[in-house]
Structures are given as structure tokens and as C-alpha cells.
């Protein structure tokens, strides 16, 4: 830092030709996400956990779970259902890690003060929120695809050992695997919206875990112990339970019996999307109104 260097401060005026664009904001958010170690580690952990849990399930446990009976000669439908279940079992843990990533994408900027630099460069704020959501959603969807298809590719060759012969040509199987990746993407976006609302990393992660993990579990216990219809229905409309319909091979049919509501894959997907949209809009409104 010498005095002579001062003169170079303003030599380069041609930069003035450029200006703020949404494409630029997208690129900026892409750079931001991929220049943090936490992003890399979150993604690696999701893939490894999923493959690990999938392997464990495929090799160790008996296939008699989730209503799929153990049978020496399971039907084709049962075989495909087992294959999908084992390939997507990692989403249960993967969603927690990707939710943490979703919260961090925005809360990390508030906790470090980066948000002020961000909004000084892009003062309308909403484009930043949208760009962050797009980059996060695409990234977690790709990570979800790698996770689910990677797990499937690794464990499917092992399944014939338990009389399961997965059929890659089955479009319903493929749709379920894509559904799992889509589920992971939207869940991370739900967590992102919570992070944008709460703005603190600890608070954001706690709230996201509360919605994804704690609330459905408690409601489940209430529903199981008391048989309360309202508790069963709340569980059904929780983002995790509703979203899980996206990657269930055997899809349920929409029904209401004795006041207990059941959703099919499409409805489950819409309920999950609705969670995201409501939280995202709330975050967007507050983002415009609050001081950064």
C-alpha cells in the first residue's frame, strides 16, 4: 500500500459500462454458495449418509417393513417398493443436513454482517432472496439426484440376495427416485425461508428442526396414544409426511375416513410446496420491511 498506488484507483473506468442485473445476482449467489466449505461438507455428508444407511438396510435388515411383507417370492410390485424404500431411506437424515444448509445460506449472512454488503450491492433485496432460493433449490435437487440415484446404483446389485430384482425400466420407480430428490430440494427451501424469517443460525436451525423433526414426532405420539383425529390430520399435513408421498412407490389414494384425511402423491407435493410458498412470501415481506 504505497502512495504511488493511489493513482491507479481510478484508472480503470471502463467497468462503468456494467450494471446490476438479475443474472449477475444469480451468479453472485452461485459464487457465494460454492466458496464456503460448509456447502461442500453438507453435500458430501448427505450422499455418504444415504449410501451408508441404504447399504445397511439392503444387506442387514429383513425386507418386511413398511407394510411390505417378507416373502420368499415377493411380487414385482413388492420388489420395486422395497428397492425404492432402500434407495430413498437416506432422505430421512439427508433432509436434516440440507435443512441446515438451507438455513445457513441466509442466516450465515446475517450472523457475519455479510448481508449489509449484499444489500449495498443489490438494494432491492427481493432479487437476492429469489436468487438465493433458485441456487439453493437447484443445488439441493442435484445433490438429491446424486444421492438417490447413487444409492440406488450401489445397493440395487445387492438386492437380488434378498429376492428383490429392481427394474430400472419401471417409470414409477424412476418417478419415485426423482420425487425424493425434489422432496429434498423443497425441504431445504422451507428451511431457507425459516432462516430468512428468523435471521439467526441457531434460531433458524432450531425452528427448522422443530418443524421437520420434533413437531411431527410429538403429534405422532399424541395420535398413537390418544387416537385424536386432529393430531393424525396435522401429521398428514406436516411438510415431511405430506412430502414423503412424493417418493412413496405405493401411492395412497386420497380419502377421508372417520375424519382422518389421507393424501395422494400429487396432493402431498402441493402441501409441501404450500409450506414453502407461505414461509417464503412471509420472509420476502419482512425482508423488504426490516432494517438489515
Amino acid at each position: 500500500m504505497t502512495h504511488s498506488s493511489v493513482t491507479t484507483a481510478t484508472v480503470a473506468l471502463p467497468h462503468r459500462s456494467s450494471r446490476l442485473t438479475f443474472g449477475g445476482v444469480l451468479k453472485s449467489e452461485f459464487i457465494k454458495l460454492f466458496t464456503l466449505r460448509s456447502t461442500f461438507w453438507c453435500c458430501v455428508i448427505v450422499v455418504l449418509l444415504s449410501v451408508g444407511v441404504g447399504l445397511l438396510l439392503a444387506t442387514v435388515t429383513a425386507p418386511a417393513r413398511d407394510g411390505v411383507p417378507a416373502a420368499p417370492n415377493p411380487t414385482n410390485l413388492q420388489q420395486q417398493a422395497i428397492a425404492v424404500r432402500d434407495a430413498t431411506v437416506g432422505t430421512g437424515i439427508g433432509q436434516l443436513v440440507l435443512s441446515v444448509l438451507g438455513v445457513l445460506v441466509i442466516s450465515g449472512e446475517y450472523s457475519t454482517g455479510m448481508i449489509r454488503s449484499t444489500f449495498a450491492a443489490e438494494p432491492k433485496r427481493l432479487p437476492t432472496l429469489i436468487a438465493k432460493a433458485i441456487i439453493l433449490g437447484v443445488t439441493t435437487f442435484v445433490v438429491g439426484l446424486v444421492t438417490v440415484f447413487g444409492t440406488a446404483a450401489i445397493i440395487f446389485p445387492l438386492l437380488p440376495g434378498i429376492h428383490v430384482h429392481p427394474d430400472w425400466g419401471d417409470s414409477k420407480l424412476l418417478l419415485s427416485l426423482f420425487g425424493a430428490a425434489g422432496y429434498l430440494a423443497v425441504i431445504s427451501l422451507v428451511a431457507f425461508s425459516i432462516g430468512a424469517l428468523i435471521r439467526s443460525t441457531a434460531g433458524g436451525i432450531a425452528a427448522a428442526m422443530g418443524l421437520i423433526l420434533v413437531a411431527p414426532t410429538i403429534l405422532d405420539i399424541i395420535a398413537l396414544t390418544t387416537g385424536a383425529v386432529w393430531a393424525q390430520n396435522l401429521v398428514t399435513f406436516a411438510p415431511t409426511t405430506a412430502g414423503a408421498k412424493l417418493y412413496a412407490y405405493v401411492s395412497s389414494t386420497p380419502s377421508t375416513t372417520d375424519g382422518v384425511i389421507s393424501l395422494d402423491a400429487h396432493q402431498g407435493g402441493y402441501v409441501l410446496l404450500a409450506w414453502f410458498v407461505v414461509l417464503f412470501v412471509a420472509a420476502a415481506v419482512l425482508l423488504k420491511r426490516r432494517d438489515a
Partner: peptide
């Protein structure tokens, strides 16, 4: 680089 990207 991230800040610069917003304005190209």
C-alpha cells in the same frame, strides 16, 4: 468476486 458478479 461475489460482489463484482452482481454488476458484471
Amino acid at each position: 468476486r461475489a460482489l463484482a458478479a452482481t454488476h458484471g
